[in-house]
């Protein structure tokens, strides 16, 4: 029993990260029908900017090693702001250089251009921070918290809480506020939204800013668990993308569900055969695509002609 509870806790913590990144895919996809294939590299940038932010706030150079004393909750919050702002700006840059020129065009030019943008970011990070993994101590310490015999790290709880909070926040904004309605209007039809007096290009830029900041936040949140490494992005982004596909790329709640589902699946299958974790995830995707191509909570796209 404790074993299963342990797997569930580990799975939820992992799933929270997938869900957070998956949400980033959802936000830009629902507005422009494109998304950033370099989201994983944005996450890397987020983690390293956060490390450097912490070091700057502690009065050190940006590539010095980080000690546990350097990381206080206040500085962590500060570096969260730094990381999200820097990544938000990167999102603007991404939109204008790699997405806007190709939006609405047939073909997949934007896929290549966003991957390329990600590779550029990865290599810049490599030049600045070097290829070795950087350990980021958690601001909450490393003492395991016991829940009915199963253990969880404070940082994992923080990831879980933060991702759920962000998702609820986005859910409310999208459904209740004027700006959220504008985003949904743009998602429905750009032309109609323009006619209704919505500043479509501003909304689209906003979508990329939010999506990229979320990557920054995710990077900051997971760095204390996984260590910040230039190469950590691809696997995470791939799993998050899978989560979005499973849950439904056009539904934020679906992305959340997909993220947690994948995290749980990974942990529970690991309990049985660790080697089968990845296989089971991608089997699930094929299954979902075959039975419900729009994702578990996705809405079927009906083209009205």
């Amino acid at each position: 029993m404790v074993a299963i509870l342990q797997a569930v806790l580990s799975g939820l913590a992992l799933g929270g990260v997938y869900a957070l990144v998956a949400l980033g895919f959802n936000i830009t996809h629902s507005t422009t029908k494109t998304f950033n294939f370099g989201q994983g590299e944005f996450l890397v940038a987020g983690a390293f900017v956060a490390v450097s932010g912490l070091l700057l706030l502690a009065g050190k150079g940006i590539t010095d090693p980080l000690n546990p004393d350097d990381v206080t909750l206040l500085r962590y919050a500060g570096s969260m702001v730094i990381s999200m702002v820097v990544l938000g700006l990167l999102g603007v840059l991404l939109y204008y250089t790699a997405v806007r020129p190709f939006v609405g065009q047939a073909g997949l030019a934007w896929v290549m251009s966003t991957i390329g943008f990600g590779i550029i970011i990865q290599n810049v990070a490599l030049a600045v921070w070097g290829p070795s993994a950087v350990v980021m101590p958690s601001p909450l310490g490393n003492d395991v918290i016991r829940v009915f015999g199963a253990g969880i790290l404070p940082q994992e709880i923080m990831v879980l809480v933060a991702s759920i909070a962000v998702m609820l926040c986005i859910d409310v904004v999208m459904r209740k506020t004027k700006i959220g309605k504008a985003v949904r209007a743009v998602a429905q039809s750009m032309d109609a939204a323009t006619l209704m007096g919505i500043n479509v290009s501003a909304i689209v830029v906003l979508a990329f800013v939010v999506s990229s900041s979320l990557a920054g936040l995710a990077g900051l949140l997971i760095a204390p668990i996984t260590t910040a490494s230039v190469y950590m992005g691809l696997t995470l982004a791939l799993k998050a993308f899978s989560a979005a596909i499973v849950g439904g790329l056009n539904n934020p709640r679906g992305c959340m569900l997909g993220g947690f589902l994948l995290g749980l699946l990974e942990a529970l299958v690991g309990l049985w055969h660790a080697e089968l974790r990845e296989i089971s995830i991608f089997m699930l995707i094929i299954l979902v695509l075959a039975l419900k191509p729009e994702g578990l909570l996705g809405q079927r796209q009906v083209e009205k002609v």
Partner: peptide, 12 residues
């Protein structure tokens, strides 16, 4: 080599 959570394996 990139895994950070080995609780399932260790539980076994």
């Amino acid at each position: 080599p990139k895994d950070t959570d080995m609780t399932s394996q260790l539980t076994k």
